[in-house]
Design a protein around this nucleic acid. Structure first.
Lengths: 220, 220
DNA sequence: CGCCCCTTTGAAGCATATCAAACCGCGTGG
DNA sequence: CCACGCGGTTTGATATGCTTCAAAGGGGCG
């Protein structure tokens, strides 16, 4: 699953709830492809997506990339318990974020006994990571792609037409596969009438058979 | 990296430190192979290893297994923020654990303002999971095995002779590979003089060239 | 001491990666 | 508004790393 914020809570309230109402937040805009923070940088700020989408990833020295998570509106990201970011973060599309300082968030959380909110946040991330390890370690390509589609579908609250903010390369680096393999899986799903691409787009698609996809997914 | 407890803190003090000195702990013994708790079961207890070793894993319906972590003496495991275990846990060898109820731990942590200790614990697990996703998604078999050996080496504080409490199958299910591939990697390392097997054992070995292994590892 | 299971090694197969090229949607600029 | 060009995507052909299948070896536990 994607790391997801509780959808019943309005976007505006989430950071405020964590930090207490006194936390000052400013908003900021990033263009498509722009870096929000880098791996190893000091973790000064915490972010919440107002609109747009974000990827966070790790790189190996030779350029291999593992995308850890995609973040969508409402999601909090960039929070570190330690002092440094352990991922790089970039905007997938034009993205507006709300920003608060990590220090303020931490101090307020501690002083107001709201550390359990942080615990809940980290736990949510951990759960996602645990599921993703199973996917990366033991699932085949069709299972991975099916799971990915259902994950996005759930994140977007089962829309009629699903819009993917990320490229095939991003999906590949999230699922531990290559662009070509992603494309082949999606083509197979299309041929099997599991999905349909909207008009002639490559990033807007309809899940025709969620049950069929779930059967392919091989979940636990 | 393995999820690891701070080695400077004696085994006896760790759970007590988290829960406060008033937390009652009893100890329990598990024979090799015995299940400690199962995925989906209610998470009543929290465990700390006194001696021995433990694996935690998820299973797919068809039996594919992903081992999430190995736990060694001093490690805390089985703590859940939610009500249910998300893994199955089994003793790798004869293992003695200290047990405390999760409820007590949670209540004490909250009432005494020690939630941040739980946060630190979950964060440690998250960090390990993040690194492991990179390994599972983007590293080849030699890199995975080299990283695994160095991880155990560090956990055991760089001993002259490293003792593996887990089988090749366990290693394979931890690294997302097969038994045969693990064996071939280890044989290659032996032929390349990177490691040496102690006497004629398969689970006691010496790291002859940690630098060489680190070079193979392709870390970030 | 002996059996069983773990491990190693070899041979063959397969899923996914790699290499290659055509297609096409989209943004740009004329 | 349309032509153009580019990057992203698809599709095909080939390569390869890891798995699967198979069998022998060997260590440790009962």
């Amino acid at each position: 699953m994607l790391v997801k914020a509780d959808r019943r809570i309005p976007v505006e309230g989430h950071l405020a709830r964590l930090g207490g109402e006194r936390m000052s937040c400013s908003s900021f805009n990033y263009r498509k492809g722009r870096q929000i923070f880098g791996e190893g940088e000091e973790a000064k700020y915490v972010y919440q997506i107002i609109s747009g989408a974000v990827r966070t990833y790790k790189l190996l020295p030779d350029g291999r990339r593992q995308i850890n998570a995609f973040h969508l509106p409402g999601d909090l990201f960039g929070f570190e318990t330690g002092d440094h970011h352990r991922f790089t973060s970039e905007a997938l599309v034009a993205t507006e974020v709300r920003v608060a300082t990590r220090q303020t968030l931490l101090e307020l959380a501690v002083s107001e006994g709201r550390v359990s909110s942080l615990l809940a946040l980290v736990t949510l991330n951990l759960r996602h990571a645990e599921n993703h390890m199973l996917l990366l370690g033991r699932k085949n390509s069709h299972e991975r792609v099916a799971e990915f589609l259902l994950e996005i579908d759930e994140r977007e609250a089962h829309p009629n037409v699903m819009t993917l903010p990320m490229s095939r390369r991003d999906i590949a680096d999230y699922l531990g596969l290559t662009v070509e393999t992603i494309s082949r899986s999606l083509s197979m799903f299309r041929d099997e009438q599991l999905v349909r691409f909207e008009d002639n787009t490559q990033r807007r698609l309809v899940l025709l058979d969620r049950r069929g996809l779930a059967a392919l997914e091989a979940s636990a």
